[in-house]
Simulated scan of single mutants.
Amino acid sequence: MRSTLNRATVFALYQLTLFAGILLLPLALVMRKAGITLPVHRAVSRVNETYEEVDTDTAG
């Protein structure tokens, strides 16, 4: 039960991170023209890796 709750929490965090990245896209495009990059890709990658780890731990 705890692993299911943990997996659901990480999945929700992953979805929220993707949603935030989509919402920040216009700001990121404007900032990129100014020469500044937002590190949203790092947050999405880290949460994705965590979700995959949790998913493989509960699958077996």
Rank of each mutant, 00 (worst) to 15 (best):
G21L: 00
L16A: 08
Y14R: 12
L27G: 12
V30M: 04
L23A: 15
A34T: 12
L13I: 05
V40I: 14
I22V: 14
A28H: 12
L13F: 00
T9P: 00
G35T: 07
K33T: 14
P39R: 02
V47K: 03
D57R: 11
S45Q: 10
I36M: 07
Y51Q: 07
P26D: 04
K33H: 13
V40M: 10
L24P: 11
V10N: 02
E49D: 12
L25G: 08
R32I: 15
A20L: 12
S45C: 09
V44Y: 01
R7K: 10
T56W: 02
R32A: 15
P26K: 08
R46E: 05
L29I: 15
T56V: 08
L29G: 04
L25N: 05
A8G: 07
T50D: 05
V44L: 03
L23N: 08
L38T: 10
A34E: 10
T58W: 00
L18S: 06
R2S: 12
N6R: 11
F19T: 14
T58G: 08
L13N: 03
V30G: 02
T4L: 05
D55W: 01
T50P: 00
E52M: 08
T58H: 05
S45M: 14
G21D: 01
T50K: 10
V54R: 07
F11Y: 08
G35Y: 02
D55T: 06
G60D: 04
F19L: 12
T4R: 11
M1R: 06
R42D: 01
E52N: 11
N6S: 12
L29K: 04
D57P: 02
L27H: 09
D57C: 06
F19H: 03
R42N: 06
P39F: 04
F11L: 15
D57E: 11
E53R: 15
R2W: 00
S3D: 13
T9Y: 00
Y51L: 15
T9G: 07
V44C: 01
G21I: 02
